[in-house]
Amino acid sequence: MTPEETVSAPNPIEQFELHRIFPLEISGIETSFTNASLYMLLAALGVVGLMVAATSRKSIVPGRMQALAEMLYEFVANMVRQTAGKEGMKFFPFVFSLFSFILIANLIGLVPYSYSVTSQIIVTFAFAALVITLVVAYGVYRNGFGFLRLFVPHGVPLPVLVVLVPIEIISFLSRPVSLSVRLFANILAGHITLAVFGGFVMMLLASGGWSLLAPVPLLAIVALYALELLVACLQAFVFSVLTCVYLNDAIHPGH
């Protein structure tokens, strides 16, 4: 990553490449410790640092970090309670882990030269698949065949149902796709845009007379970076709110 290299070939995709730090294979499955694993670990350590280390004193009057941990706790708890109801609170630890992990991973990904865990479709899809599996498993466990009422909206006349049920089924099946692609695409697009604008700055600087214009894309990067901070938080929030909505469907199908 010397400046000459970047100028000659500004590659906005390079940042998403996976690098195997410790190549490893267990019974035919590749389990290499990669830069993605490293940043997953960092994100998890960030969450643990905030939620476990910062609350170790358990003080009635919280310090700064404990107040942050409590804010996060209450924020997610309110979100779960409002969207999935009191019964949904049994999934609170799950939603909390999901939200805090995605949030911290997104934010760490915004640090220059770092790696964005959530910019990989397989990671977001794994989360989405986990959510949908949980929704289906809990929905069937709790409601049995009643879970199928999810596809039959209440109080709709029969002729409409003929059309509506297939739509409902398709929309349910597309949930894991939309859930995973939304997060993945947002993070990916944001990082590509930042890298492209960074490439503009380098190219303008290297182009002699035009280098006077280099601050323009630089300012755009600053603005985009603010937007990406918003996106990082918002997408973590959207992902977990939708998780709560889907869990609510599993708890109360058929409305």
Partner: peptide, 9 residues
């Protein structure tokens, strides 16, 4: 790239 990411995730 999928397998190592899923395993560690």
């Amino acid at each position: 790239n999928f397998a190592p990411q899923i395993v560690w995730l």
